[in-house]
Design a binder for these strands. Structure first.
Lengths: 249, 249
DNA sequence: ATAGACCTTGCCGTAACGTTAAGGTCAAGA
DNA sequence: TCTTGACCTTAACGTTACGGCAAGGTCTAT
């Protein structure tokens, strides 16, 4: 039951490099070294490695594992409690990161959807007036409510209403922003900031000043955003960002 | 609006070392180097650093951030989606680790609680027989059901019942284990293994063969476990571990 | 002129290995 | 017996995002 390093590695499923490393840090020494300088492992080493792998599977640090295995009166339960605490902390951190990424993604997709929706709404509006003028009331009795699922319609209505609100907010925002760049008034700036924050609330589920400021910076640095905002008037993106940086804390 | 490295660091809240590192990896170069070789930063660098910090706050790698900021047509949305994927994966990993740690902790605490509960049950049993023999039926009408909240009682009953089952399983386990060490029969070994697995089911909410084997190794390597198992008979812990290693896959 | 605050580059250390390079060992077949 | 291929060894660099330290140059105020 003696193994050279490769046999031992294959037997246990770890790499030979890992075993050399464990030797180096005194976590798992070979049973002996033969005359050629080869590491030779035996049954006791198999067992110790199993234990190492058990604790490693719980993501404990190798130094911790060394403590657990080498100090006979080491408080394993305390170590596991610590590990639980650390993992819980990491989990909380990651959840925070996930929502931050989601917010940013929501925003990106919100921008895209917005312009698509705007096109769609404009198209629809045009169609309605077209149909009205062409066929009048007749068409509305022929098609209409009957063919559309009621709940689906309610959903579409509420989404449309929200989009309408958002669009209104946005329109106000740019009107005031244009007034602001032509004649700087600080009270107007605060109004604009509040409008932008409100506008954000249609896509962000929770607010963070840091993210808000980051977003402002993207308006001026990412040309897709700049183009979108400068569609209203030249310099809109930069003016908006200035205001955001001024008020978001 | 020109800053030496320390001013810039204080302004932005990162360390001077970090700024030197960002310079080194070409993530954020100073606006210029003055005659003394000092790094001088300006307004554009403030802005770029803000953007870096925005993405860093999402836990993106610096190389990734460099791509986003330097390649004008870089797909930021794709990058954020990737990041979301990675974070979700990490979260899933951590959740797996948490349950593994919890299982191990449950087991440790289960061992402790078990012996406490056993003491408690033995104590209670003794009290009941004492009282029965001393006061007979009289006492049961005097105290009893009336003073005890019914739902609480039900809970205690079910817990007690489970503990009873667990204790019975354990007793069977050790009877068969003792028979096994005196006269090795392989069919008995499988029975013992199944009993132990069943016994585990009273404390583990989900089963993993790897954890089972790890547990077996702890029986022989951690003296608190060894003592607990060798209370039944000498060599019990080792015999049980041998069987676990043989059957748990 | 000198002290103290600031700046520079260069290098080591972090965690747990993967990878590569240069060179020694072993068993088997020609 | 020689060679080949599989295996072994140590040494050293690379990974990530810096922290910390040392040796030495610069600036500002007293």
């Amino acid at each position: 039951m003696e193994y050279t390093i490769k046999k031992f590695a294959q037997l246990s499923g770890v790499s030979a490099r890992t075993l050399r490393y464990y030797d180096e840090i005194d976590l798992l020494k070979p049973a002996r070294i033969n005359s050629a300088g080869y590491r030779i492992y035996g049954a006791k080493e198999v067992e110790r490695l199993q234990q190492i792998l058990f604790y490693r599977q719980l993501d404990l640090q190798l130094a911790e594992i060394k403590n657990i295995l080498d100090a006979p009166d080491f408080d394993v339960e305390q170590a596991l409690n610590d590990q639980w605490q650390q993992l819980s902390q990491k989990k909380a951190d990651i959840e925070r990161l996930l929502t931050a990424v989601e917010q940013t993604l929501d925003h990106y997709q919100g921008e895209k959807k917005m312009s698509d929706q705007e096109k769609f709404m404009a198209f629809k509006k045009q169609k309605i007036t077209e149909n009205e003028s062409k066929y009048g009331a007749e068409i509305r009795t022929k098609y209409g409510e009957k063919t559309i699922d009621a709940s689906n319609q309610r959903f579409l209505n509420s989404t449309a209403a929200q989009l309408q609100e958002k669009a209104t907010t946005e329109q106000q925002l740019f009107e005031k922003l244009q007034a602001y760049v032509q004649n700087t008034q600080s009270d107007l700036a605060k109004e604009i900031f509040d409008l932008h924050k409100q506008w954000l609330s249609y896509t962000w589920t929770s607010y963070s000043a840091e993210a808000h400021r980051g977003l402002g910076l993207m308006y001026v640095s990412d040309e897709r955003f700049t183009r979108y905002y400068d569609r209203h008037f030249v310099g809109a993106a930069r003016a908006l960002n200035d205001i955001i940086q001024q008020f978001a804390h």
